[in-house]
Amino acid sequence: MAKLTLDRLRKVYPNGYVGVDDASFEIRDGELLVLVGPSGCGKSTLLRMIAGLEAISGGELRIGERVVNDVAPKDRDIAMVFQSYALYPHMSVAENLGFALKLRGLGRAEIDTRVREAARMLELESLLERKPAALSGGQRQRVALGRALVRQPQVFLLDEPLSNLDAKLRASTRVEISRLHRQLGTTMVYVTHDQIEAMTLGQRIVVLNAGRIQQIDTPMALYDRPANLFVATFLGSPKMNLLSGEVVERGGALALRVGEGVDLPLRPDGVLRERVQGYVGRQLTVGLRPEDLRLSEAGPATLPARVEGVEPVGNEAFLDLACGGGDLVVRLPPRDLPRIGDTVHLGHDPGRMHYFDPASESRLDAVESRQVGGVNTGGAGTAHAVP
């Protein structure tokens, strides 16, 4: 096992395109860290730089205490699981699992021991004689995981390994990967575009967009305190509701004017109130998670909204609403739901509101990143906003 340290890593392609820009953070020994973001954000490029499959244009990469910028992939003591299973179709499961060990010159007894141990951990023991064509998608993915596992590397790299599986298999294989990590205690770096995978698997998550790190933190810290509008709307399903308008003040009380005669009460506390006060007469963006809105009786502290859609999904329901010229989604219990076309009134918990500057898109009360020797350590509970 080993920690990884990325210090200002940068990837610039010959045409001048910057794939990764100034990536600095540490992956702790034994940690399962997830890189997440939309397509083209640089997450797979960053993983391939760690693997040695992409040349590093700038900065420094260390595995343990060793700088590996110019070390060949085979000498980095890492194992990578790709999106495609890439199994040898003419080989059995056992032969696929042991092939890399055979190439490294290990003895038959050692190969057999490692293969059977990996098969036991991944519940492949009854499939060792089968060919890949006789396996399900989930079984093939487990063989791909096992092929990395038998190498006993310092670091596992997983590049969207579940994207070819259906929803049910993705859920069960997520559980297997999490269990495997707890059992092995090996450092893992997992890449995905799926925010559900990121939230359920990662001990910490690195959120990327356009090649730059947006925030590093634990899953629930990211959900509860997104550092900017991108993180706020990327993590969470449905995404965070955003309301924009002018901040107004009446009798010392602050509100966000989101439409003609429609004011949303704002009750920020402490230093945050001073910052919001500075937006009086200016535009501000406020976020509320779907579960932080509720149906209420009409009153001065509620928002009127028109029901545009009702989506019951079993244990909960979602209301799609039009409010103040914008759209909102509310998460509710699936009982006594309003009908399409009804006007409802929304209450909210002011303490659950998120405040963002519409120009910089940064959270008003974001905590500055902690830097240790130029490396962003990403401590739990700390928001890391891109300036």
Rank of each mutant, 00 (worst) to 15 (best):
E117Y: 03
H181K: 02
M188V: 05
N228H: 01
R212C: 13
N376C: 14
L180I: 12
G287Q: 03
N69Q: 11
V344M: 04
V93A: 10
R130K: 07
A359D: 11
P132M: 05
G251R: 00
A366S: 14
G138W: 06
V344L: 08
S296T: 10
Y355R: 03
Q283I: 06
P300K: 06
P304Q: 00
I213C: 03
G211K: 00
R335Y: 13
V67F: 02
R179Q: 08
G98P: 03
R363Q: 09
Q283D: 13
G325A: 10
R62E: 12
V307I: 05
G37W: 01
A72T: 11
E123V: 12
A221F: 09
K43D: 01
Q214Y: 02
E308V: 12
P219N: 08
R363M: 08
G374D: 12
V143Q: 01
L284C: 02
A144K: 02
P290A: 14
L35P: 03
Y17F: 14
L128G: 03
E249W: 12
L264M: 15
I196N: 04
I216M: 13
R120Q: 06
L135R: 00
A301L: 02
R225N: 15
R339S: 15
Q183R: 15
H181G: 04
R275D: 10
P238K: 09
S178F: 05
T173N: 02
R114N: 07
T218H: 12
R294K: 06
H90R: 12
T377C: 13
F156S: 05
V68Q: 01
A255P: 05
A227G: 04
Q277D: 13
R140A: 05
L332H: 11
I27M: 09
E95Q: 15
A366Y: 13
A210G: 06
C323Q: 07
L256T: 03
I78N: 05
P338C: 02
L201T: 01
L128E: 05
R179M: 07
D112F: 00
L222V: 00
R114C: 10
M91C: 11
G64C: 14
V307M: 04
H345Q: 04
L135Y: 02
R225P: 14
A94M: 06
V18G: 09
R76P: 11
G351H: 12
A221N: 15
L266F: 10
L303T: 00
V231Y: 13
R363F: 08
S163L: 11
P268V: 06
A305E: 00
P265D: 01
A317W: 11
G138C: 10
V34M: 04
V206T: 04
Q277M: 13
R140Y: 03
N209M: 07
V344H: 03
G59C: 13
S84R: 14
A109V: 12
N15L: 13
V18I: 14
L127C: 01
A232H: 07
V248S: 06
R48E: 13
V18E: 11
G58I: 09
G40I: 08
P338W: 02
M49I: 13
L293R: 08
R108Y: 08
E176V: 15
F230T: 04
A305V: 01
V271P: 13
L264P: 08
